Deep mutational scan, measured.
Amino acid sequence: MDLSALRVEEVQNVINAMQKILECPICLELIKEPVSTKCDHIFCKFCMLKLLNQKKGPSQCPLCKNDITKRSLQESTRFSQLVEELLKIICAFQLDTGLEYANSYNFAKKENNSPEHLKDEVSIIQSMGYRNRAKRLLQSEPENPSLQETSLSVQLSNLGTVRTLRTKQRIQPQKTSVYIELGSDSSEDTVNKATYCSVGDQELLQITPQGTRDEISLDSAKKAACEFSETDVTNTEHHQPSNNDLNTTEKRAAERHPEKYQGSSVSNLHVEPCGTNTHASSLQHENSSLLLTKDRMNVEKAEFCNKSKQPGLARSQHNRWAGSKETCNDRRTPSTEKKVDLNADPLCERKEWNKQKLPCSENPRDTEDVPWITLNSSIQKVNEWFSRSDELLGSDDSHDGESESNAKVADVLDVLNEVDEYSGSSEKIDLLASDPHEALICKSERVHSKSVESNIEDKIFGKTYRKKASLPNLSHVTENLIIGAFVTEPQIIQERPLTNKLKRKRRPTSGL
């Protein structure tokens, strides 16, 4: 017993010596996670971090007073192994002897410093981030199933929210409404489509400006004509009531908005009720001829604005009016007729031209339509002016008669200019590109209106002035400009410049 007691005391002394060697000089306990400095002193990692955080910048070693920084600290694995072995020896000594260790306080702390507990403390002390800490805590505590279930439920809930957000973003663009038309193969669909197009076009005519009305009406008319041609002859009974509906809707729209509806009346003529396609083609032919005449008058307007600064050229074209007008009339009417003589009366030419125009518009179905009313009214106005011209010709002399006839021709041009508003800008460009020769010939008609105004002003003063002067240069210039014009009389060319000069002198006297 005595020997055993001596041996136990010796073992205890050895353990105490080893414990003092492996103590931390700051906390005076076994080193936890030993860290060595540049001066080869060993301290606990937790104690050194606490010391360095007390001051900004480098701190001093507690043993040798040298500078220490966080970067200079290094882990010493050898001392950590020695500490672990010492703890194992102490545990074995207690089991063999059955005696508690003399320094129970220190031993209890040593026992608490088992490797499992050290790992837990290291995970908390090290600044490795929240995710690494959570992982280490889960690994160190596998015995708690409640914690695992809560963490898994949190992760699953987070994943569910992310997935639901993604699915919502994908589903939202798919919620856009999609309209699908289910059509049938019955023959009544074509008639319904035609009526739908006509009503939609009328609404567009009321909303859209004048520049786009003609294009819309032309497209709708083409669509309706194609649909009529596709149907068989057996379905004509269905077409006639639908066309009557079209007429009623167009008349109502014309009564409500007459000014807006006139812009599309000329282009919509071939959508009118037709028994066969031949009647629609004839109407299209007549409309094309009318559009040609209207576009020519538009060309004359532009030329008149350009040549208004040259009064000499405008005056020299006075007698070329009849010849150029004959050529335009021959090209406007498709019928083959002989040219009228140069010395014939211009009023007779106008009456013949009106007689040619009237039969074209005397179809029984055309008179029933609303768009032809505008053309009939313009023709009636022309006839009224010609009836007035006959009365004026009986009273005035030959020279005054010529000037009045020219004035009436200008009035006719004004009437025809009203129809110019109905034609589109695209048709003007096509006419100029296809028929430049006709445009040059028809330019002379509009330029002549300037000389007509001068004659009217001469009649106000009650006299006409003449001068025997020749202007050969002007006649040559005008002959080169206009290709299809005829030779003019030299006496009238000489008379016109004198009248304008005298007018300039006598205007201030009349004002006084």
Rank of each mutant, 00 (worst) to 15 (best):
C39I: 00
C27D: 00
K175G: 07
L182M: 08
E149P: 09
K88A: 13
L138W: 14
N132E: 06
N103A: 10
Q155G: 10
Q126P: 04
T176W: 02
N66S: 15
I124V: 11
E84A: 07
I90C: 13
G160E: 08
D67G: 13
E149S: 06
C39Y: 00
C47S: 01
L99E: 10
Q169Y: 11
P34Q: 03
V14G: 04
R163V: 11
F107I: 14
D245L: 15
Y105R: 10
E33T: 06
L147P: 12
D40P: 11
S114V: 04
C39T: 00
Q81D: 15
N53G: 10
D67C: 02
E29S: 14
S72P: 15
N144H: 15
T161R: 10
K65E: 03
V191C: 13
T190K: 10
K65I: 04
I124F: 03
F107Y: 00
D120R: 05
N103I: 09
E181V: 08
D189W: 01
P34V: 05
P34R: 02
V191Q: 06
R78K: 09
K135S: 10
L152I: 13
S72G: 12
T164R: 05
V8W: 13
L156A: 09
Y179T: 12
L182K: 02
E188I: 07
K50T: 03
L82V: 10
M18K: 00
Q169K: 14
T37K: 00
R7G: 05
T97V: 04
V162K: 12
E181M: 14
G98T: 04
K110H: 14
S157P: 09
R131C: 06
Q54R: 11
C39G: 00
H41S: 01
E33G: 02
C44K: 01
C47K: 02
P34E: 01
D40Y: 01
K88E: 07
Q155L: 03
T69A: 07
E121A: 07
Q139V: 08
S59V: 15
F107E: 06
D2P: 04
S104G: 08
S123P: 06
N113K: 11
K168E: 09
Q60D: 07
H117L: 03
L118T: 08
G129K: 11
S114H: 02
V191N: 04
G183P: 10
K110L: 14
Q174A: 08
I26F: 07
I90T: 04
K38C: 14
R78Y: 15
A17W: 07
D40V: 10
S140D: 10
T69K: 02
K175A: 08
L137S: 12
E85M: 06
L51E: 07
T37P: 00
L118E: 07
L138R: 10
I26R: 02
S151F: 05
A17C: 11
E29I: 01
V154S: 09
L73G: 03
E143V: 06
T190D: 04
N144Q: 06
Q169C: 14
Q74C: 12
P34N: 05
E75V: 07
V154L: 12
V154G: 07
G183M: 08
H41I: 00
G98S: 07
L30H: 00
I26K: 02
V8R: 08
Y105M: 06
R166Q: 05
R71V: 01
L28W: 04
V191E: 06
R136P: 12
T150I: 08
N144P: 12
K38E: 15
V162Y: 07
L63S: 03
T167K: 07
E141D: 03
V122L: 02
Q139H: 09
N158P: 08
Q169N: 02
A92L: 01
E23G: 15
S151V: 05
Q172R: 07
S104L: 04
E181Y: 04
E143R: 08
Q155C: 09
F46R: 07
Q54C: 12
L159N: 04
M48I: 07
G98A: 05
R7M: 04
G129S: 10
Q126H: 01
Q148P: 03
P34G: 03
V35M: 06
K55L: 13
L95E: 10
C61R: 00
L6M: 15
R133W: 07
N144G: 08
M128Q: 15
Q139A: 12
C47I: 00
E121R: 07
Q148C: 12
E143K: 05
Q155H: 13
S59C: 12
N103K: 05
R78P: 13
R133A: 10
I125E: 09
N106L: 11
R78I: 13
Q19E: 13
N53C: 11
N112P: 11
T176C: 09
S146Y: 04
V122K: 03
K70V: 00
E121S: 10
R170S: 08
P58Q: 13
N158M: 02
S123T: 07
I15H: 00
Q155W: 11
K135M: 15
D189L: 08
S153T: 08
E149D: 00
Q174D: 01
L49S: 13
R71P: 15
N16I: 04
P142V: 08
C91V: 15
C47G: 00
I124M: 14
E141M: 01
P173H: 03
K20F: 00
N66P: 00
I125K: 14
H117C: 01
G57M: 04
T37S: 09
V191D: 09
E33I: 09
Q19R: 12
A102W: 05
S153P: 10
S76V: 03
G160D: 06
L147A: 12
D185M: 15
L138V: 12
M48L: 15
S114C: 00
N132A: 06
P115E: 14
S177C: 00
A102G: 08
E23A: 03
I42E: 01
V83D: 08
E29L: 13
M128P: 10
E141P: 11
E143M: 03
L3E: 13
E111N: 12
K20G: 07
K20Q: 11
L3M: 15
L137A: 14
K110S: 07
G183F: 05
E141H: 11
P142H: 07
I124Y: 04
Q81A: 14
R71G: 15
E111A: 10
S184W: 10
P25Y: 07
E84W: 00
K56E: 13
K175E: 03
A92N: 00
E10V: 06
S153D: 07
L30K: 02
M18T: 00
N16A: 06
S177G: 08
H41E: 01
T167R: 06
S151P: 13
K119S: 10
E100C: 08
K50V: 13
G57K: 11
L3W: 13
S123Q: 06
E143F: 07
E181Q: 02
F43A: 11
R166E: 09
T77W: 15
L118Q: 04
Y130P: 07
I125S: 12
F93R: 00
Q139E: 14
S76N: 15
L138G: 07
G98C: 03
I26Q: 01
V35N: 02
